Computed example of a mutant assay.
Amino acid sequence: MSPRAVEQEGFAALLLRLRAEGISSKELLNAVEQTPRTLFTPPQFQENAYSSRLVPLDCGSFMEGFDFTVRLLHHLSLKPGQRILEVGTGSGFTAGVMGRIAERVLTIDRYKTLVTGAQKNLEKAGIRNVIVRHADGSIGLAGEGTFDRILVTAAFSSLPRVFSDHLVSGGVLIVPIMMSETECRIVRLTRTGSRFDREDLFEAPYLPIVPQLASFL
């Protein structure tokens, strides 16, 4: 099956699954459709590009299942004109979809290998408003101002206060939290002034965040 046929079939199947969950944002789904996931998936795993399975990447990282990624973005409630911070770049696919909607996306990863690969993938997809940076996501990102949305894709042991100053009032932070040694759950925080409202969403496959830049990869 050609890559284009894989994309069309995979997206059609996704629409049916998401509709059953009540996810129907045209803006989000258009952004997903315009960002071919096959461009971000390693060649040996192309057949799983549109599946719900985890797809292995370099450096022990992975691409989340396709449904899971869209579910995350649905709860992020992206809007045009927003500034987005993503902690954990991976293949660059999630940042690419966000870049189709938002004004600017800054995505960071501790692995130089992933940063380089994501930059190439985004270039292939023709997405130019996503900046990929090699940085330590465990300590926040000083000097970059504030963001309307922050998406973290590595788990913290408790709510990370390091991101509170990065979020505007009315902004949303989505972060995985380790509830136990084996259970990780996605948590959404919405900032209103100095108050943060918490909502626990669903279980996630993420591993605990690793501090500092990777020494070799």
Rank of each mutant, 00 (worst) to 15 (best):
N129C: 03
V162P: 05
E181M: 05
R110M: 08
R149P: 07
A13L: 12
R149H: 10
I174V: 12
G171N: 13
A125R: 13
T107G: 03
Y50V: 01
G126Y: 13
H166C: 12
R53M: 13
M63L: 12
K124G: 01
A125S: 07
F11C: 08
L201P: 04
G117P: 00
L72E: 00
V32R: 10
L213W: 02
L201D: 07
D165H: 15
S215I: 09
E181N: 06
R110P: 05
M178T: 04
A13D: 09
T146Q: 15
V132P: 07
A135C: 13
Y206M: 09
A20P: 06
S77T: 14
L39E: 01
V175F: 08
A13R: 15
I101P: 06
E123Q: 02
K26N: 13
P211C: 09
A102E: 06
F68A: 12
R37Q: 05
F11E: 06
P208W: 00
K79T: 13
V132N: 10
V105T: 00
R71P: 03
V187Y: 10
V32N: 12
G92M: 03
E144Q: 07
R149L: 11
V187I: 12
R71C: 01
H166Y: 15
G10A: 11
S61C: 08
F11A: 02
P208F: 04
T192K: 15
I101H: 00
A214D: 14
G117E: 07
R104G: 11
T116W: 05
K124N: 08
A155E: 01
P160C: 04
L207R: 05
M178Q: 10
G65M: 05
R198S: 12
E103F: 04
R53D: 12
P42I: 03
P160R: 04
S157C: 11
V55G: 00
G81D: 12
V70S: 07
F40R: 03
K79E: 15
V55C: 02
P56F: 02
R37M: 06
C59N: 12
L122P: 01
S164H: 10
T89K: 04
G65I: 11
E203S: 15
L16R: 14
N121S: 14
G99I: 08
G81H: 15
F93H: 14
S24T: 13
L207G: 00
I108C: 01
Y206F: 15
E183M: 14
R4P: 01
R198F: 05
R104T: 07
Y50R: 00
C184H: 03
L76G: 11
A12P: 00
I101D: 07
S194Y: 02
F147S: 00
T41H: 02
